[in-house]
Amino acid sequence: MSADKEAEFVKLLEEHSGIIYKVTRIYAKGNADEQDLRQEVVYQAWKSYARFKGDSKFSTWLYRVALNTALTHKKKERKEQEGFETDWQVAPSGDERALLMAHIRNLNDAEKLVIMLHLDGYNNDEISMISGISKNHVAVRLHRIKEKLKSAIKTEENEN
């Protein structure tokens, strides 16, 4: 790819890198793994960028690449590091954002994906398109996940 294309890609990715941070923070097993995964997402996005024709928004496309990379990376990691504990810090009590992240990380892979896209403002059609889950199923899942999160957060708050 040409230097212009590379500069354009770097600029776009800089603007939308919040997506990469969110996905990697939720799917990575620890701080070191998060950094590796972030680099892997950047590389995979760069590799696939030639095929990005602008049919969808760049952010939607990037979400898809980041999620696919994260899920593939997780499978690989699981094989390589079975039995290793994660090195994530426990969310400090009172920090709502860290607490929310911790609870989202506890969800399964599909649930993480659905709630993250929903919270980032994607509608059910778009979530269905990105995740491959049927539209009706997205709505049902979303409801369940929200209930699950609320209940987990409430329990935590009551304990503190």
């Binding site: 770097v10 890198s17 919040g18 972030r38 590389y43 760069w46 954002r97 929310l100």
Partner: peptide, 23 residues
């Protein structure tokens, strides 16, 4: 909470992105 998280989210710098391209 998610919105506030997104607003305070870190961003990748151009140098970090270019490092990724060198993978």
């Amino acid at each position: 909470t998610w919105k506030s998280l997104s607003e305070n989210e870190e961003r990748l710098s151009g140098a970090e992105i270019r490092a990724g391209l060198n993978l």
